[in-house]
Nucleic acid binder design. Structure first.
Lengths: 304, 304
DNA sequence: CCAATGTATCTGATATTCTGATGGGACAAA
DNA sequence: TTTGTCCCATCAGAATATCAGATACATTGG
C-alpha cells in the first residue's frame, strides 16, 4: 500500500465503536470476527496507539481512541460527501451553479432563493455575480455563468435562450430638493434635458455606442447603482431607478417620482428574464433556481 | 473491500494531478505506470465520473475532476491530521489539555497564552474552565483537569503538586459613594463590620465551613466575580477584589481602595500556583502552558 | 517520419485479505 | 463454584487483489 492507514481500517474502527463489539461489527460488515480483529490490530499498530481496552468483556475506547475516533469519522464523512457529489454529477445535477444577476433585480428575492438553495442542494456551490447592463451579459456569453437573470438589451442576442420571469417598474426620480421635483405638472422631455441625468454606465463594451433611456445631453455616468442612488439623494441630478429600491425614499419624501411626459406614471416596465446558452441548458439546480426566483418574486409583489 | 473508494485511489488521484501525468505519479509513488492507470481507472468507475480527459498527451482534469479533487484533498488531509495526532500521542504530548483557572487570575494573560498555544500545539485541543475557590480545585482533584492555576486554599492539599507562578495583589474596595470611601483615615476592623461585605461564595463544598477574609457579620454571597464587581460599583457594599480587575475603576474614581487597618496599602498578596496531580504530570504542552503563563504574566506586570 | 513520452490493457508472480477453527478470558445465571 | 454464553486473539489454508513487466497504440516535437 502507499501509506499505512486505509479507509477500511477507519470504517472498521468506527463500526466497532458504534456496534459495541468486534463481533457485532463483523456481523454488520458481513465479515468474520477475526477479520475485524485484524483490521483494528493493524490500525493500532500503524498509528502506534492502543484504541481499545480489551481487558473486559466488551472492548472500550481508550481516551486516545476517543480523540482518534473523531478524526476517523471526519475522514469517512469526507469520503461520503465525495461520493455524494459524484453521484450528483452523474445524476445530472450541476456540480456548481454560477448565476449573474442584473443590479436592478430585487436583492431580497435573490437572497431568499439562495438561502433555500443551500438547503435543497447542499453539495452544489452557488456562485453569484451582480453586474449591470452588458457586463451582466458577458459572463453568460463566454460561459463563465450558466445562468443570467437579466433585462433585455436593445439588440437581441439570438445566441441565448431566455425565459421571462416578470416585470420590474422603472421610474424617473430626483431628490425632493431638486428643481424638477417641484415642477408641478407633467414634465416635457425638453425640460429634463436641461438637468444633469445620472446614468448607469456599462463596464463591458457590449453596448458601446448605445444608450438606454438617455434624455439629457448632460449626463453623469456611474458604474455602480448604489452610488447612483446616493447621488440622486444628494441632489446631484435626476435619473431612472427600479421602483423597489427607492420605495422607502419615496414614502419618506427623500426622493420624488418625476411625472415625465411620455412615460406611464406607474413607471416603465422592465422585463427580467433568465438567460442561458443553448449549449448549457440548466440542470435540476438551475431550473429550481429560476422557478424559485419567479415564485418568490411574485409572492413578494402580491404581498405588497 | 468494504466500500468502493479507497485512500490509495485518492492519493494516486492527487499525485497524478500534482505531477501532471500518470507516469510521473508512478515514479513518485514508486509504482509502475500501469498501476497508477489501474487505480485511477478504478476510482473513475466507482464514482462514475470521468476525472481526466486523456485525449491529449498529458491527461487534464475534467471540470468534475476539479471539484472531486478538492474533496479528495480534504479527505487525505484528514487522514494526515489523524496520523499526526496519533504521533503526538505516542511522543508524549498531551492529546488534550484541560486547565481550570481561578477567576482572580488575569484573563488577559490567559487569552494571550491560549492564542500562542493554538499555534504551538495545533493538534492539541485546549479546554479552559474558569472557577472560583474550591470549585476550581475540584476538577484537578477528580482528574477532569490535568492542570489548575489556583491560589492556595487555607487547608493544604498534599495530594497535589504545585509550582509557584507569582503574586496577585488583592485590595478591599468600595464604591466612591459608599460611606467607607470617605472614612478619611485607616479603617479599623470594627468599622468594616458595620457594613455589608460582598463575599465570593464557593460553589463546591470543599471549603464549606471556612471563610476567606470575612470581616463583617453581614455578608452577601455572590457566586460570580463579575456580579460582585457590578454590585461593588452599584454601592451595595464593600469587598475584596484582585487589583488588576478594578484598576480602571480606581483611576476613574468609580471605586476607592479602602485603607484597612491590618492590611498593607499595596494590598494583600495572593500567590497563584500551577497545581497538578502527581499521577498526571503535565506533558510538553502543559509545561509549555505553565511556563508561558509565568512569562507573559511577569512581562505584563513589568510593563505596567 | 522518427524518437521520446505517454496511456490502456493483459498476464503471471506475489502479497494481502478472508474464512473458519481453536484457545483463553469475562460475565451472568444456576 | 460451575456452566454456558459471548467475546477477543491467533493461526492455517483458500480466495482475492495488487504488482511488475511486456505489449500495442496515441501524441508531441524535431
Amino acid at each position: 500500500m502507499l501509506d499505512g492507514v486505509s479507509l477500511d481500517q477507519l470504517r472498521t474502527f468506527i463500526a466497532a465503536v458504534d456496534e459495541g463489539s468486534f463481533s457485532a461489527a463483523a456481523r454488520k460488515l458481513n465479515r468474520v470476527q477475526s477479520a475485524v480483529s485484524a483490521w483494528i490490530g493493524g490500525l493500532e499498530q500503524q498509528v502506534g496507539v492502543t484504541l481499545f481496552d480489551r481487558s473486559g468483556r466488551y472492548p472500550v475506547l481508550t481516551p486516545e481512541g476517543v480523540l482518534l475516533l473523531a478524526d476517523a469519522r471526519h475522514v469517512v464523512a469526507g469520503v461520503d460527501t465525495l461520493k455524494a457529489r459524484a453521484r450528483l454529477m452523474t445524476s445530472g445535477v450541476e456540480s456548481e451553479l454560477s448565476v449573474v444577476i442584473d443590479v436592478f433585480f430585487p436583492t431580497s428575492v435573490v437572497s431568499a432563493v439562495a438561502k433555500g438553495f443551500a438547503e435543497r442542494f447542499p453539495l452544489t456551490p452557488l456562485r453569484l455575480f451582480v453586474e449591470a447592463l452588458g457586463a451582466a451579459y458577458q459572463p453568460v456569453l463566454d460561459g463563465r455563468c450558466s445562468l443570467g437573470i437579466l433585462p433585455p438589451l436593445p439588440q437581441p442576442f439570438p445566441s441565448l435562450v431566455s425565459e421571462r420571469l416578470g416585470e420590474l417598474p422603472l421610474v424617473a426620480v430626483a431628490s425632493a430638493c431638486h428643481s424638477l421635483a417641484s415642477f408641478g405638472r407633467r414634465i416635457p422631455r425638453q425640460e429634463l434635458a436641461k438637468h444633469v441625468q445620472l446614468v448607469l454606465t456599462d463596464r463591458s463594451d457590449l453596448t458601446s455606442g448605445r444608450d438606454f433611456a438617455v434624455a439629457s445631453p448632460s449626463t453623469w455616468r456611474l458604474a455602480d447603482l448604489s452610488t447612483k442612488h446616493a447621488f440622486l439623494k444628494d441632489c446631484v441630478g435626476w435619473g431612472g431607478m427600479p421602483l423597489h429600491m427607492i420605495e422607502e425614499d419615496i414614502s419618506s419624501g427623500t426622493l420624488v417620482v418625476l411625472d415625465v411626459d411620455d412615460m406611464p406614471p406607474s413607471g416603465f416596465m422592465l422585463t427580467m428574464s433568465a438567460f442561458h446558452r443553448p449549449s448549457q441548458p440548466p440542470g435540476p439546480a438551475g431550473k429550481w433556481f429560476v422557478d424559485q426566483l419567479k415564485a418568490v418574486w411574485h409572492a413578494e409583489r402580491s404581498a405588497h
